[in-house]
Amino acid sequence: MLRVIDRYAFTNRLRMVDPAQKSAIALTTIVLCLVLDRPLVSGLALLWMVGLAIGYARLPWRVVIAVLSTESMFLMLSVIGIAVRLGVDASTAAVPIGPFWVSMDRSSVLLAGQVFIRVIACVSALNVLALTTPLVDLIDLFHRWRIPTILIEVMILSYRAIFLLLDTLERMVIAQKARLGYASWRSTLRSSALIGSQLFMAAYQRSRMLEQALIGRGFCGEVRVLPIRYHHDWRLWAFLVLMVITVSLARMWG
């Protein structure tokens, strides 16, 4: 999933739009959902965000829905705790499970639904940002926001290291499978344990080589790179205004 998100972040139609503008849209949507706090508002914001991702950024609908579905599953597990009550006393419409009684009523289910739609609308706004903005652009934005350099450097190197480690991990798993690793429960445990230690060693060696390469290119304590040139898209501002108007109207009516 990480690779998929990263690939689309680099290839969508909003790639070269200023990340500040995209962040503004995502943050405004989140604030609207939290402040206006109505299921209709959240539902409408969700539709706007999905529409922006598929209709304007030209992201494949399968990818957008797959990401949302994965997040929904995790969210469902959380809101079940709101909808369902667990007790030791029998009450109306309660189902016994072992020594406990599980029950739910209309208000708790409604509350769970409201929380679900509000959170998924906020998450969809973050999805738009994640699926249209590579981390390199966000790092560039953090530079402009004067986030401490050391944090930004850690982000740059971590981002790169994630993909290097993923590559190393994939190669190690293939090499193990070629020698009957993961063939049984016991060999799966052994293979996984070996990979854990070897991956650490590989990461350490790579970091040493990388340090040497950085010094070879004049590194003297600060990672300095050229900024990327972006443009502002007036249609996105128009989109934001339209969204604010429609969700505000929905709040008045809902």
């Binding site: 790092i139 790169r160 290097l164 290119r217 003297c220 990672v223 300095r224 790179v225 050229l226």
Partner: peptide, 22 residues
């Protein structure tokens, strides 16, 4: 190995690292 040398997220930024350090 180029993977030992490339550290930045984008090609543009990676190539710019050396000249800025100079």
């Amino acid at each position: 190995s180029p993977d030992e040398q490339l550290f930045s997220a984008s090609v543009w930024q990676d190539i710019s690292f050396g000249p800025l350090n100079l």
